[in-house]
Design a protein around this nucleic acid. Structure first.
Lengths: 174, 174
DNA sequence: TCATATATGTAGCACCCGCTACACATATCA
DNA sequence: TGATATGTGTAGCGGGTGCTACATATATGA
């Protein structure tokens, strides 16, 4: 019985999330997926195509996780939604995804190409999701800006600075 | 006449800024610096030490550029300082540095070690610089959060979303 | 049943990786 | 002057890279 492409992508994305995007190479990826480099090329055509597929898979899972984050339909203020998002981003299950996200942004802005498309799609999807949960949908870019800023500071080892920044924002918004 | 370590670091950091941190390898680095891989190991001891030195060099230059950004002593509101920073971050001379910064954060949060120290130092230095130019220094974490958020959106190909986020913030602050 | 399509193992190619051994030049200092 | 320190070219080691050639097993469909 052949491994389905989806089962393959599951293992591959786990490996990428744990070990990074640019440092992933075929033989370790194959080992993690229980197959051979030979088979990965057979299935995906090239390493670049494989990585792009993995990125899409991770992005889809991220979107799915976001959906699961807020199951109720209630609209929220920008501040309230940001709290929900920020709490989620601090969970250890989501942080590997956030790290890959930052790595992807760095690559996308330098290289463009398919990576830039994925990055663009992720932001657009995130923007739509955010707007759908806001009392004022036009606050979505604002919420996203806050979220990404907090994220960078946290991953740079300054979670406390992020927390202060958020507290300060709350005070300013009154 | 031997190349000074500083001249070496200049060329090496230029190459890293143009081609990325994780994808840098000795032979291309040596070529960019007009020397040989043999000599790079001789000077820096190992590739890892070289990359860490390059990162410190880039961080120092970033700090220097920040100093040059605001030559007057006048204190600013959070909003005004953010405008100054944000304008600088959009210049094509600064964007390569910003890309490396995001790449560094992604690596630092996954691997820890020396990279995490550099990332920490950069944020701390940036925080101090920001506080020094603010009427209310305690706004520094807030300004940093905004800046990093705008940066991620811009480098993800959503400069317009960033602009809207910033506009929205201005409106909210009144 | 038999040809074709799909799937997979084995071996290996050409190249790149960080790094080192060795020889040798030049510079510094006793 | 001679020993020692510093710098540099050449060659190469062991191993990892993406990818391919070839043989072959199994499944599918005429």
């Amino acid at each position: 019985m052949a491994l389905t492409t989806d089962a393959l992508l599951q293992s591959l994305s786990d490996h990428v999330l744990a070990h990074g995007l640019q440092t992933a190479s075929l033989r370790p990826l194959a080992k993690a997926a229980g197959t051979s480099d030979r088979m990965l090329i057979y299935h995906f055509g090239s390493k670049e195509a494989l990585v792009d597929d993995v990125l899409h898979y991770i992005a889809d899972r991220m979107a799915h996780d976001l959906t699961a984050l807020l199951t109720d339909q209630r609209s929220r203020s920008a501040g309230a939604l940001l709290e929900n998002l920020w709490q989620a981003a601090q969970s250890e299950t989501m942080r590997p995804t956030m790290r890959i996200w930052l790595e992807l942004v760095a690559i996308a802005s330098r290289e463009g190409g398919a990576k830039a498309n994925v990055a663009d799609q992720i932001v657009t999807g995130f923007l739509d999701w955010t707007a759908a949960h806001l009392t004022d949908p036009e606050d979505a870019p604002f919420v996203l800006t806050q979220f990404e800023g907090l994220l960078v500071l946290q991953e740079a080892g300054h979670a406390a600075t992020a927390a202060t920044g958020l507290k300060r924002l709350r005070e300013k918004l009154g």
